[in-house]
Each structure stands twice: as C-alpha cells, then as structure tokens.
Amino acid sequence: MNEILGMIFIVIGLAFDFLGCLGLIRLPDLYNRLQASTKSVTLGTCGILFGLFLFKGFTAAGLKAILCILFILLTAPVSAHALARGAHKSGVKLWGKSVCDKYDEDKNALSKTT
C-alpha cells in the first residue's frame, strides 16, 4: 500500500519537474523562467523525496528525506530571490510586453537624487 502511494507521489513529482523545465525553455524572459521553474521544480523534488519517505518508512533514509524537504522549501525561494535581484542589478531587462517596472523607476529616482 505504502509503495503504491509512494509511486503516485513520485509520478506527480516527475510531472511537475518536467513542466518546470519546459517552462525554463518556453517562457520569454529571465524573471518568468525563474518564477515557473523555481515553483515547479521545488514542489516536484519535494514530491519525489516524499515518495522516498513513503517507500522507506521511519528509517534513517526516510527521516533524512524529510529533513531534505524542509531544507529545499527554505532555501529554493531564497536563491531565486537572490538571483532575481542580482540579475536586475546587472541590467537584465524585462520582457518587451511587460506592463510596469516599479523597481526600475524607484532605482532611477534614487540614483538621480544622490
């Protein structure tokens, strides 16, 4: 029973992983790509590791998988945030059809006053 549930979790995780990587290919600019791929790949890998926990139960590997899930959920958004900030400061433009960029406006206003 546990193994079937684990297989279902692994299949869901694989589907989200694949869709995240497809988003990395298809979406037009860096910020959209970062958004899609970070969300999907984080949840997908969490699904695979939770499947491993269901396969193994409360053994050494299962508890380490739980620890790994917590670690990814804490660190993946932080690294996405750092990359987006670094890319914006290094001058990567938004997609041409974007609606607004308040961050750019505020940065320009700040640099004019100082």
Partner: peptide, 22 residues
Amino acid sequence: ANIDVAYRVIHPDLPINPGIVK
C-alpha cells in the same frame, strides 16, 4: 501555484502579462 504555472506553460498562446509591482 503549481497548477497555475502548469496551465500557463502548456497553453499555446502563453497567457502571461508580467511586471514588477510594489
């Protein structure tokens, strides 16, 4: 969020309308 992203990635017209808000 994941279902939302999956819908946007699969859709042929890419229904996105991005921007940075405050």
